[in-house]
């Protein structure tokens, strides 16, 4: 985040934040976005490409980029990195087998320089499913403690199905971004 960007954002009347949602396929990214926006979540096809949602959240405007997680299109994630204020990494807590894949993709993502200033919210989704790993177990598997000290991060258990935990996670994310970007406010 360069100084110019900060100044531009301060001057902007509408306080916009750009949020990037990523994670493996089947983790529930689209469902989370629609749930937060209060939309119907009963018919959601796997995302081919991406969706953008603009949501008024508290006194901020969130531009949420929800990018498909299928393996074929993961290589396109990088096209969305530019100017990302907040990164949301969604984990399917019930998919134990692919936690290794999940860790590998997250590690790759965090090496990305363009995302180095972004606040990171990890949503341990599908907590409503019996057998899902708890957020602290997910944190252990993903080895979050060893993350770069400069990174602002937080892990929250949630369920896009019931909506539980979503607001807690996004509250933290928005506050954290605001404290960085709109610090002069």
């Amino acid at each position: 985040m360069g100084l110019l960007t900060i100044i531009r954002k301060i001057k902007k009347k509408e306080k916009e934040m750009r949020i990037l949602m990523v994670g493996l396929d089947n983790s529930g990214k689209t469902t989370i976005v629609l749930k937060i926006n209060g939309e119907d979540t009963s018919v959601i096809s796997p995302t081919l490409g991406f969706n953008i949602k603009t949501i008024a959240y508290q006194k901020y405007t969130l531009n949420i980029w929800d990018v498909g997680g299928q393996k074929t299109i993961r290589s396109y994630w990088r096209n969305y990195f530019e100017q990302t204020d907040g990164l949301v990494w969604v984990v399917d807590s019930s998919d134990l087998r692919r936690l290794d894949d999940c860790k590998m993709e997250l590690d790759n993502l965090l090496k990305e320089e363009r995302l180095s200033g972004a606040s990171l919210l990890i949503l341990a989704n599908k907590q409503d499913i019996k057998g899902a790993l708890a957020p602290d177990e997910i944190a252990k598997v993903l080895n979050l403690e060893t993350m770069d000290k400069s990174r602002h991060w937080m892990i929250v258990g949630c369920s896009a199905y019931t909506g539980e935990g979503l607001l807690e996670g996004f509250d933290w994310l928005v506050q954290d971004i605001a404290s960085r970007i709109y610090v002069l406010d």
Binding site: K71, D100, E137
Partner: peptide, 29 residues
């Protein structure tokens, strides 16, 4: 990193499916 990641993610399509056992199995689901 980026240079090495791209081909890796492309290559990994087949091998990843073959990854034998996850290193982490919390419980018998």
């Amino acid at each position: 990193e980026r240079d090495s990641v791209v081909p890796e993610s492309k290559q990994s399509i087949a091998p990843v499916y073959n990854s034998v056992q996850p290193s982490y199995v919390a419980r018998d689901s």
